[in-house]
Amino acid sequence: MKEAAVSSGGLSLARRRLLRLPHFNISKLSASDLFVYGAAIAVALILLCAIAPQWLAPYSPTAMQADQVLLHPNWSHPLGTDYFGRDVLSVVVYGSRDSLIIGFVSVLVGSLTGGLIGALAGYAGGIIDTILMRIVDVLMTIPGVLLALAIAAALGPSLTNVVLAVAAATVPGYARVMRGQIMSMKARPFITASRSIGATGPVIFWRHVLPNSLSPMFVMAAIGIGSSILTGAGLSFLGLGTIKEIPDWGALLSQGRGYLTVAWWICTFPGLAITVFVLSVNILGDRVRDRLDPKRSRG
């Protein structure tokens, strides 16, 4: 029981440290604090775009106006219009939803699957560990982008399939980290202690080993959101993404490529949206890592 209290205390401490922001005194903020605040605002704004695009988009993303084709950015169309006469700002705002779903859901699916495989390998040990880890080793030699490309191409273009493909590509990495973490946790004295007072295998695993092994996974997931969005957008760009009326950022950029010499804005702004979001998520992810890992908590 005592270890349980220690472990939950540790977790809530980690959580408290995670949420603690520097005292808000603008003159005392360092440059990296400013980046963190800027990133938080950008992420919040883009999340709002994904949740309630109708509040932020000036036009309907599907409204095609034949007399307003390929207009330069101007007051009524701040980011210009595309070949179909759609307002680029509105398409970018509405396109955020699919782009973000790919990033967040694939990280969730990938880290849960990879985490479970790694946890099983690390806790079970022996032949199960050997078999699972050899498979992971082989999967790791195939670069994630190619793995995702092959899976997405085989499954066919749809949002679910892109999510699955991007998630599958991240599974080996999560499995390896989780296994290492579980193995080192298994050897800790408090695990031996709980075994000595008669705790059974599943109790030790679910109550003690697993909760204490999660923080590197959180860090990896936080850092992974950005790269998952990049991979997903890359698949869309190559034409393997969603085929929908409202294109996601990667697909819009791909459509704009054909008009590069006449309309720079169609490619530029969805790419900027991807960059701003991934940059912000990475800045926040770095901060989470610094907070959770005392060894690296030097800016």
Partner: peptide, 15 residues
Amino acid sequence: GLFGISMPTFWSGIL
């Protein structure tokens, strides 16, 4: 470093 890992290559290439 941050921009390097955050920019999609298909966008920076097009720029």
